[in-house]
Design a binder for these strands. Sequence first.
DNA 1: GTCTATATGGTGATAGAC
DNA 2: GTCTATCACCATATAGAC
Lengths: 191, 191
Amino acid sequence: MGTATRNRILEEAARLFTEKGYEATSVQDLAEALGLSKAALYHHFRSKEEVLYEISLQALEGLLEEGKKASAVPEAREALLRFMEGHARFFEENRPFFVTMLQGLQSLSPEKQAPIIALRDRYEETLRALLRRGMESGVFRQLDVALTARAVLSLLNWMIRWFRPGGPLRAEEVARFYFHLLLRGLENGDS
Amino acid sequence: MGTATRNRILEEAARLFTEKGYEATSVQDLAEALGLSKAALYHHFRSKEEVLYEISLQALEGLLEEGKKASAVPEAREALLRFMEGHARFFEENRPFFVTMLQGLQSLSPEKQAPIIALRDRYEETLRALLRRGMESGVFRQLDVALTARAVLSLLNWMIRWFRPGGPLRAEEVARFYFHLLLRGLENGDS
DNA sequence: GTCTATATGGTGATAGAC
DNA sequence: GTCTATCACCATATAGAC
């Protein structure tokens, strides 16, 4: 359980890391944005890397929670829709944390990367299980599960590169569009 | 027209930027990898940013060339397949340049970002025109063109985050899988 | 829990010799 | 076209007072 100051630091750090990138954000920048001294920051966190690690961890734990809820839905199509909507909603509602988690992975040392990657793998496995279930029950076509899961996550995750809040669509609506595109396909059945 | 040394610098820089990130790669790192002094680098490039800019420019120019070739194919389905294959092939054959271009955009100053973004927009417009053509001719379903184009590029571009050369599949094969998934859809027609 | 001051080393970039 | 030496600055992180 983090103190209030600790959380304030994480929020502001996630905002700055998202905006300028982790490497391009200095501890000085962060301290100034918070109205604190650098030394005060180092009272709450051992290092800048630990701040990144904590943000990534919280983002993935929240996302995993969403994924589990969605995959509990019995019907596979509905479960996939909920999974995709949930992912998009989590992204939009926790954009700084989510983006920092996805963009910052490369900046973590191998020791700190490992637990993050393990969580990410659990999340992806949740999606693969959902797809496998749909294929076995005949709702989905029999396709390469790993590649299909990657397709779903590619669609959703690439939103960090173009989606800006305040646009015409909510992230959840984009996810729904992708879901229908993915399910029914691009090709016109008439021709 | 670049000299041989200039090109050698760009190649090595793209490799390092891809591996560690642009901000985390110092001019010192680059000089050591090339067996040159920092001062020698500054004879060939005005700044580290100019190196990033040159790499991004070359990557996008090559990609745009591929895109034009694909969209010249008359039948829309075939054109889309060629577009996606061409994108994936360009990625795999020019991975350091391609990845640096996609990841480094945020690190460029607004002045240097602008021409890069303009080229990227031209490339994306090529894809949108291709999709529009397919929808008007009745080959594709009538969908939001901008969002459909984003879906295609999301699938392809997210490969920079997971695709590693030497794996079981070539990037082009992944693109073909995505193409068929996108065209026919995930849903089983039997049910 | 926050501060000022500082340690230590690396950063992008340049001067000027060869 | 490359080098050695150096500039001016900023990085992460810490010591010790309050």
